[in-house]
């Protein structure tokens, strides 16, 4: 310590305070579930990004001659110029002869985009509304009643309504999943803000004349980050599931874009005969959701120790 000190008692306390805690990144990397969850999520992101390089064929390419092949079967594909190529199907083909391996690899894109987008949008909107609701008391009752109303809307029903009003597509699906998630974020942020606004450092900022927007931005919001990040990962996981559910029900992403949900929907009717059609996308879906949840648990333990004891 270079801080000038007047007496050694305080010096000892200062030394104790200065004992370095390992930085947040090191602590995160030491956490097993962060490590495992993070690696799997990273792997999925890489798969999504590099899908064309992973020995895939165009996922929407229909070939009626090789319908319903089981995994590992050698198939002959007739190319446009009349020549043929031999290929082994890693995960078989579906009832239209599309290659499931390719579809699963490309499907990672939609799942991750939906997961991250829903997480980011609902956090961004939720934090903004939560800050206002928690800090500005007269807005609180009004905002919270609207949020209660939003929470009462069942997500799937909202999605069906939106799809029938607009076109089914990525945007509609994201919007339909985001709407019911926002109130959850708002409630979380509001409860954190309610405790932070009473902290003396916030009062100190008020008494040095800091304008409202700076108080919210500098003093209140940074201290809500930890629980919000944690909540964000859980929203991400549930959004991936929700998208799969919507696609499975046929009200999500149109079938020409492969998603894990609509690959499974496709395989549903022949499930007993050709289980691989559902099995492989299901494995990827389960693995991704598990990984995101593990990442969330680990983040919670590291960033927000109080919360981890509570749950």
């Amino acid at each position: 310590m270079t801080v000038a000190l007047e007496n050694e008692v305080d010096a000892a306390a200062a030394r104790a305070a200065a004992v370095a805690r390992p930085s947040i990144w090191i602590r995160l990397l030491r956490h097993t579930s962060v490590l495992i969850g993070g690696s799997i999520v990273l792997l999925m992101v890489l798969i999504g990004l590099c899908a064309p390089l992973l020995g895939t064929v165009p996922p929407a390419q229909i070939d009626p001659t090789v319908r319903n092949k089981k995994p590992g079967v050698e198939i002959t594909v007739r190319n446009d110029d009349g020549s043929t190529t031999q290929r082994t199907t890693l995960m078989g083909t579906d009832s239209l002869g599309r290659d499931i391996y390719s579809r699963v690899m490309y499907g990672a894109r939609v799942s991750l985009v939906v997961g991250f987008a829903v997480g980011a949008i609902s956090i961004a909107v939720g934090v903004l509304i939560g800050l206002l609701s928690g800090y500005i008391r007269w807005l609180d009752g009004f905002i919270m009643r609207i949020m209660d109303g939003l929470m009462a809307i069942p997500g799937i029903l909202l999605a069906i309504g939106l799809v029938s009003l607009f076109r089914a597509g990525l945007g509609t699906v994201i919007f339909a999943i985001v709407v019911p998630e926002i109130p959850r974020v708002v409630r979380l942020v509001r409860s954190v803000v309610l405790t932070i606004r009473e902290e003396p450092y916030v009062e100190a900022a008020v008494s040095v004349g800091t304008p409202l927007h700076k108080i919210l931005w500098r003093h209140v919001m940074p201290n809500t980050v930890a629980p919000v990040i944690v909540q964000g990962t859980f929203i991400c996981a549930s959004a991936i599931l929700a998208e799969a559910t919507l696609s499975f029900l046929g009200i999500g992403i149109p079938t020409d874009t492969p998603t894990w949900g609509n690959i499974m929907a496709e395989g549903r009717q022949f499930f007993r005969v050709y289980p691989h059609n559902i099995l492989f996308p299901a494995i990827f879906l389960a693995l991704t959701v598990l990984a995101v949840n593990m990442l969330g648990d680990g983040l919670r333990d590291t960033l927000d120790p109080k919360m981890s004891k509570r749950v």
Binding site: E199, Y201, A204, R218, H219, P222, N223
Partner: peptide, 8 residues
Amino acid sequence: YRSLNPRR
């Protein structure tokens, strides 16, 4: 311990 913003 609570009078200073821990993140600034």
